[in-house]
């Protein structure tokens, strides 16, 4: 049985440069993750803050034996953002495409497609594979079985499932952090920095529901795909993606490693995760063809 590899997806939140450095250094030194994504995907306005620290983070990660993937913006708009994408696409490292904007610049060389790219069927996957897609992480709303169907028809691509974290549910042209604070997006004062896991959005009846992160909307709950590795192998799924949050990600990575190495069963892994300081409860409905907010696995 092929070993399931672990990937740390791109960070969605706006963390100060110092926190980024500490976080990724620890990931480089203390985890056995095969792949780590770096770079800003949510908001181009944050790039000037993080851009200076990425080179040393990349160096440290590569020294720690991690394959580094350069993630690109999911909703580029300005000339500067489009230019940034073109520059990243020229890099020799693997690049993650999160908008079709990056495709012409990267076509013909290997890339990863992130969950922001609409890959819903095998015809689309094969089309992208012909252009260079080496790894496809499909949209979060697809079930395990659906991804299995696509992966089965597209064996040349390595399929990766979004397996841990608040689910990236929507993007907007409007910044909700700015709107909430009565500010305009163009002079937003980066209030999103105050919420390292996003800001919780509850219903009027106080049910935890969503979280906002600048122009992005996420789930309040933490999606956690915890199934036997044989279930993944049977569906040609080769990687699990863990999304960075403020909780102890080294522990999260260790838990998933134990799961895919069969040292820990899904129930046990769920218990370990539930003991961490997570910003929401655990759900997994999407993986099982249900509403994403549901928990299909036995609690």
């Amino acid at each position: 049985m092929a070993r399931v590899a672990l990937t740390l997806g791109p960070l969605f939140f706006h963390w100060p440069a110092e926190r980024l450095r500490n976080f990724y250094f620890r990931i480089a030194d203390e985890t056995s993750l095969e792949r780590v994504h770096v770079g800003e995907v949510v908001c181009g306005k944050r790039m000037p803050f993080s851009d200076p620290v990425w080179p040393e983070i990349i160096e440290r990660l590569e020294r720690g034996g991690k394959e580094v993937v350069l993630s690109t913006l999911a909703a580029p708009a300005t000339v500067r953002e489009r230019k940034a994408i073109a520059e990243l696409c020229a890099d020799g490292r693997l690049v993650e495409i999160n908008d079709i904007t990056a495709l012409p610049a990267r076509s013909g060389r290997p890339f990863v497609t992130g969950p922001f790219l609409n890959v819903y069927n095998e015809a689309t996957a094969r089309f992208l594979a012909r252009h260079g897609a080496a790894t496809i992480c499909p949209p979060v709303e697809l079930s395990l079985d659906t991804v299995g169907t696509i992966a089965g028809a597209c064996p040349e691509v390595g399929f990766e499932l979004f397996a841990f974290g608040r689910l990236p549910l929507a993007l907007s042209g409007r910044c909700y952090h700015a709107r909430l604070h009565g500010l305009h997006k163009d002079s937003c004062q980066f209030t999103c920095e105050q919420d390292p896991d996003g800001l919780a959005v509850d219903t009027l009846d106080d049910q935890p529901f969503l979280a906002i992160n600048g122009v992005q909307t996420l789930s309040a709950q933490i999606h956690s795909l915890l199934v036997e590795p044989a279930e993944l192998a049977a569906r040609n799924i080769r990687r699990l993606r863990l999304s960075p949050h403020g909780c102890d990600m080294v522990e999260v990575a260790r838990t998933y490693r134990d799961l895919v190495e069969e040292r820990q069963d899904p129930e046990g892994a769920r218990f370990v995760l539930s003991c961490l300081e997570l910003p929401g409860t655990l759900v997994d409905g999407y993986a099982h063809g249900l509403a994403g907010s549901q928990l299909a696995a036995r609690a």
């Binding site: 549910l169 929507a170 993007l171 042209g173 909307t217």
Partner: peptide, 14 residues
């Protein structure tokens, strides 16, 4: 939300 890239509905209602 940017259309075609919004999963809010399936998150709540499947």
């Amino acid at each position: 939300m940017i259309e075609g890239r919004c999963y809010l509905s399936s998150y709540a209602a499947g």
